[in-house]
Every structure is written in C-alpha cells, then in structure tokens.
Design a protein around this nucleic acid. Structure first.
Lengths: 171, 171
DNA sequence: ATTATTATTGAGATTCAATAGCAATAATAA
DNA sequence: TTATTATTGCTATTGAATCTCAATAATAAT
C-alpha cells in the first residue's frame, strides 16, 4: 500500500475528507525521502507551482503523524523537523554537536530493548527514538573532545568581531 | 563535586562571571530533581521571592547545558523542557501519546548499543537519548481518540497548578 | 444530477516561546 | 579604589505555530 492509500484509509476511518491539497503534500513529502521542515516543504511545493498555504501544511502534518506516515525529529535549530517513516526502514540518528551533522543508522538491538522495557512497564510502544549525541568522526579527530568549548568561544567571539567590523564599515 | 562547584569550574574555564542569579537558578533546578520548563522555573523562583528575569533564565540555560548540568528533553507541548542530569542517574523516557504522561526508566542495554554503534561509525558519543512512544498502561486500556487532547491538557496543566498550590501552602 | 451539510482551505491576525537591544548594575582585574 | 566589561532586567522584536473566518469544495442525502 502506498502512502496515499494508507492516508485514505486513515481519512475514511476518521470521517475526514480526501482533498487534493493533502494528497499533494503527501506526494511531495514522499518524493523527498529525507527530513524536512515546514518552510522547506512550502518552498518545494511553490517551486512546483503547487500553491498550498502554510496553514494547510501545519494542519495536515498532525494527520500525517497520526496516520503513521511521518514522525517528528528533534534537531537543534529551534523549530520542528519531520521525516517520512511509512515504507522507510526505521533508523536512528547520530548527531554531531560540533558541526550539526546527522548520520542515520539502523539497529535491531534498540527494537529488542523497546520490547523488553514495554513488557516491564505494561507500556504499549508504537515507536521508539534512539539518538546518539557527540562528535562525528571528522570533528572528533580535528578538534579533540576537549577543545570544543574553546572553539565554541572562539567562534562566538569571532561573530562579535565580525559584527563590529561590519558596523564600522558603514559610512 | 556539587552542581554549583561544577558550574563554577566551567565559568572560570570560560572566563565568565560568577553571579548570584546563576547560582540561584542552579539551586532551584537541583532542588526540583525533575524535568521543568522555563515558565515553571520562573514561577518556582518567584514563589520563593527570587526575582530573576526570564531573560536571565533563557541566557543561563545554554550555559547549564554546556557545563553538563542539564539537558534538553523533547516533549510535545510546543516548547522545550529540561532536566538535571549532573549527579542524576541517566534515564530514558516512556511517553504516552494519549495522556502525555512521562515514565522514566533506566536501562543498561541502551548504553551498550551506544558503545557498539559509536565504534561502528567512528562516532564519539557523549550522550544518548532513548525514548519509547506509545500508550501507558491506563490509556492502552481505555483508548479514546476524543479524550486525547483533553487528557493531555489536564496532565500538562496539573503541574503548573501544583506549583501554585505549593506556594499558597506556605505561611 | 441537484441540493444540503459541513469539513477544509487560504489569508491574515494572533499567540507565545525565545531572542535581541539597551541602559543600569555589579563582578573581576588592575 | 578605580576601570573594565560581563551580566542583569526591562522592553521590543522575531518567528514558528495556531486561530479566525469567509469562501470553497467534498461528501451525503434527495
């Protein structure tokens, strides 16, 4: 069953309506095959002359989550991201705190942990999220774990300097 | 080493300044022993006649994260939450999508997965986040879609009410 | 097919967590 | 004690996400 039909089933079960907007959104998301945010999605649709309002995107996303087509992913830039999960192999994320890079990995052990813990707590788990936070190979090698804070400080001070330079340039 | 001193070491290393506001914030957070959001923290401080501006809370939190005292936790009510981690046993979360309830659990297997995956990808993991999403024992039984938002709202608002109650109890 | 009902859309207004700017204050170093 | 400047609190601002509401269009009923 493709995402559209999966969604139609959900729509019918909930007594909601099938609309071209919703299906266009699903088509676009499942042509991305990667994580996205609302702005990105909106832009991609616009570039294809599909004029769907952001309000509709925001209203559709919860339905896509409820129907199991996508899920939220938490990055660290202050707003939500999403990724298609239906028809995609479940994966987890490695997130580099230095460069922000996201590496995906699959792991079966996490699934077993899910089952064991669920049983232990009488919890019916429908999903899990497993994420490793740290340093990607490049950043771990280049910086060393200890240098991070120093680099961070240098970076932030550089920013201030840049801001000053820019300011002083003005006539 | 207690959280305050851990923070003082960080402050010194970064060339920042020790202030009573920052230390009051740390004291409050580590007296909670549980997750919190900025509003809650602000209210609790106010109830104790500690008048610290929200701006300072927002400015201090990144320092607490950087120094390893707290971490972000992602719930689903549209804004960030945090929890103390320094001196606390690492734990993971079960999150009920019906009532919003959070159950904590500890698990060593997750740590082993972290080690194995890190080695595999050449990633230097400093932390992991493992979360199970589904239905808590109560909700798994009654399972009503209509009740979802109502229950969720009740749970998340209960906390704020508790904070107020606590204040009113004081003589 | 036609009509009635009402969910959905789009545009703009609104909310609110989070950030930024600025003058006053206070922590550190000299 | 004085000088330097990070920090604070207040206010204004940003921007993601939500809400309002009239217009539209999807479904059910006739």
């Amino acid at each position: 069953m493709d995402p559209i039909n999966k969604f139609r089933a959900y729509i019918k079960a909930q007594g909601l309506r099938k609309t071209p907007e919703r299906e266009t959104i699903i088509e676009e998301i499942f042509s991305i095959h990667d994580h996205f945010d609302v702005d990105e999605l909106f832009l991609r649709l616009r570039n294809k002359k599909k004029r769907i309002s952001k309000a509709s995107l925001y209203r559709t996303i919860p339905l896509l989550i409820e129907s199991g087509l996508i899920r939220e992913v938490y990055f660290e830039d202050g707003h939500l991201h999403y990724e298609p999960i239906y028809g995609h192999k479940h994966h987890c994320h490695l997130r580099c705190t230095t460069c922000g890079k996201i590496i995906e990995f699959t792991d079966d052990a996490a699934l077993k942990v899910q089952e064991r813990i669920s049983k232990k707590y009488g919890f019916v788990a429908t999903a899990h999220r497993f994420e490793l936070i740290g340093y990607c190979p490049k950043c771990a090698q280049r910086d060393g774990v200890q240098k991070k804070q120093q680099l961070y400080k240098e970076n932030t001070e550089k920013k201030k300097q840049d801001a000053n330079d820019e300011h002083e340039k003005r006539p």
